[in-house]
Design a protein around this nucleic acid. Structure first.
Length: 548
RNA sequence: GCGCCGGUAGCUCAGCUGGAUAGAGCAUCAGCCUUCUAAGCUGAGGGCCACUGGUUCGAAUCCAGUCCGGCGUGCCA
């Protein structure tokens, strides 16, 4: 981590010593509390170039350090040459004022001000209902978008879909078959690889209600009506599900518009001009082998239809052309194969693919009572995201789906998720928040006006108080790291630690019934904690109820 | 076969741009409510960080190889 005060005094010391070698001055929190509040390994880094032992260098640095004794109580050399720094309570108390002045904006940094990012997530085609996998994608994507917002980016949340391809045709014929089975012929054959989900029957029932027997001839016009009906039905359901998760995207980008606007044609033409595409066996191939990949791939099938690669490439160019500084894609692990193709395609068009950041998340397995709940697309008996939301609620769903690293296979334990108890990590955070609200309410009921500007924070000297302040101070940097690494779970872990630090404070330090000075200082601290928890939970998209 | 991800406590997982004695939650065991929400707090036990070799002051972390699991490897998306 960086610390501006420490950085300044250390750079001054190194300058005095006339150190001109390369180094990376960073401060970190030691695992062991006896080693102080922060440490740096700068002396080790300089050992080789200066040809001195780390301990000797560390001592020289300390000799040259000039610092405010009001803020730093101790700087010492330890172990192999670590420099440990210990702050005074006064230092921490002062930080609290700083947090207070930022108020509900605390945590926000304008690091990326003026920069635009597009985050594309969910992007399920309107051919069915969202399931658990989409849920993880949605939760990670939306939280990531929040993180970008909190680190200064101007964020566009985007959903990409295709309502024209094979999948849509498949849905259409599946609905038609169900419709026919209901409307005229119970034995009407169901397509070989059709959509077996029970929702298709529901769609057919509604279709029958609206159109009666009108569509039984299955003319092209009839099928178009059915297709549109199915698409609208699915999209409506998808959007409602997302809304339940507090997800509202800004742009719904239709793949079809790439064709209508001639963007697919343009890409094909350019690739041909650059001699990167060629005809073979009736299909158009893209010469990925000339772009650093192993094999050439088909981009237009011999039937004349493009494969997914072509519109994907055109779509990414389109996004880059819209002027984003960063274009983020969120995919499940099953889409990994498309990534190198799309990036190579974008490079082939002369664009900077380093602006594209692809995040691949691993799968989710649903567990119940220690057994895996099997998802079966064939039988149509699947546990949808809506089912899950009905079952455990939006807060638990969002939290559980982001609480692990994106690269880790996620085990979603229904038994724990359903439990409204200490086993459930969501409630741990919400309980801390509710406790704060409850106590502040009690204090307010006493009717005394407290002037926050005049509270004397030097009364906060208990270990639990200082530890809580330390935790609260880490919030902005935590959001930065989580955004930078694209790892929302970092925020989950952080907030759990904030809640834990608060619970200890709550346990050790009584508020009501203590002397006024101490009481007011502690109320102040509780208020700051409330702000951090609330802001943090809003980043996660989890609600912060005042009562539990 | 090849590519990507993972293998850390009984279970689920952090830590992975190298740092001091490897962490958390759950589970197990032992404590703490006449006072602000016990959905809480305190403590204990629990580990060849998959394996082997390498890099260096120092490796769970980096490199190479091996083994195990997941996902890919289409004129499906």
């Amino acid at each position: 981590m960086t610390n501006s005060y420490l950085t300044t005094i250390f750079l001054n010391a190194l300058e005095k010593m006339q150190v001109k070698h390369e180094y990376n001055l960073i401060f970190d929190i030691p695992r062991n509390k006896d080693h102080g509040d922060l440490y740096t390994n700068i002396a080790m880094q300089l050992a080789k170039p200066l040809k001195k032992s780390p301990q000797v260098i560390a001592n020289e640095i300390i000799t040259n350090l000039q610092y405010d004794k009001e803020l730093i109580s101790e700087i010492s050399v330890a172990g192999a040459g670590f420099i440990n720094i210990k702050f005074t309570n006064n230092y921490y108390q002062k930080q609290l004022y700083q947090i207070y002045s930022e108020g509900s904006k605390y945590g926000y940094t304008d690091l990326n001000a003026g920069k635009k990012v597009n985050v594309e997530y969910v992007s399920a085609n309107p051919t069915g209902l969202l399931h658990l996998g989409h849920g993880r994608n949605a939760a990670i994507g939306d939280t990531l978008a929040n993180l970008y917002k909190w680190t200064g980016w101007e964020v566009t949340r985007e959903y990409y879909f295709n309502n024209a391809g094979n999948q849509m045709m498949n849905l259409t014929s599946s609905i038609y078959a169900r419709y026919m089975q209901l409307a005229s012929d119970p034995d009407f054959p169901f397509p070989e690889d059709g959509y077996h989900g029970s929702y298709v029957i529901t769609i057919a029932e509604e279709l029958l209600q609206k159109y009666s027997q009108e569509l039984i001839n299955g003319t092209e016009k009839d099928l178009e009506i059915i297709r549109k009906f199915g698409e609208n039905w699915c999209f409506d359901k998808i959007k409602k599900t997302l809304a339940r998760m507090n997800i509202f995207q800004d742009v719904f980008y239709n793949e079809d518009s790439l064709y209508k606007d001639g963007k697919i044609e343009a890409v094909l033409k350019e690739l041909k001009e650059k001699n990167l595409s060629y005809e073979k066996e009736g299909a158009t191939w893209l010469a990925f082998s000339k772009l650093g990949l192993e094999d050439d791939r088909v981009i237009v099938k011999s039937t004349g239809e493009p494969t997914y690669r072509l519109p994907d490439i055109a779509y990414h160019r389109e996004k880059l052309n819209r002027g984003y500084d960063l274009v983020v894609d969120l995919f499940g692990a099953d889409h990994i194969a498309t990534v190198p193709d799309v990036l190579a395609g974008v490079r082939a068009l002369g664009l900077d693919d380093s602006k594209i950041k692809v995040i691949i998340h691993q799968f989710v397995t649903l567990m119940e009572n220690g057994e895996q709940v099997k998802m079966s697309k064939r039988t149509g008996k699947s546990y949808t995201l809506d089912d899950l939301l009905d079952d455990v609620g939006a807060d638990v769903v969002r939290y559980f789906l982001i609480m692990r690293g994106v690269n880790t296979h996620l085990e979603f334990d229904l038994s724990i998720a359903r439990e409204q108890s200490d086993k459930n990590p969501v409630f741990y955070l919400q309980y801390a928040y509710a406790r704060i609200c409850s106590i502040l309410e009690k204090v307010a009921a006493e009717g005394k006006n407290i002037d926050f500007e005049k509270i004397d924070l030097t009364f906060l000297n208990e270990v639990a108080e200082i530890n809580l302040i330390k935790q609260l101070m880490l919030f902005p940097e935590t959001l930065q790291v989580a955004a930078e690494k694209a790892e929302p779970h970092i925020v989950c872990e952080y907030l759990r630690e904030v809640a834990a630090a608060f619970h200890v404070f709550y346990h050790d330090c009584r508020i009501i019934g203590t002397d006024d000075e101490i009481k007011y200082a502690r109320i102040f601290l509780a208020n700051i904690t409330k702000i951090v928890l609330k802001n943090g939970m809003s980043v996660l998209g989890v609600s912060s109820p005042e009562k539990m």
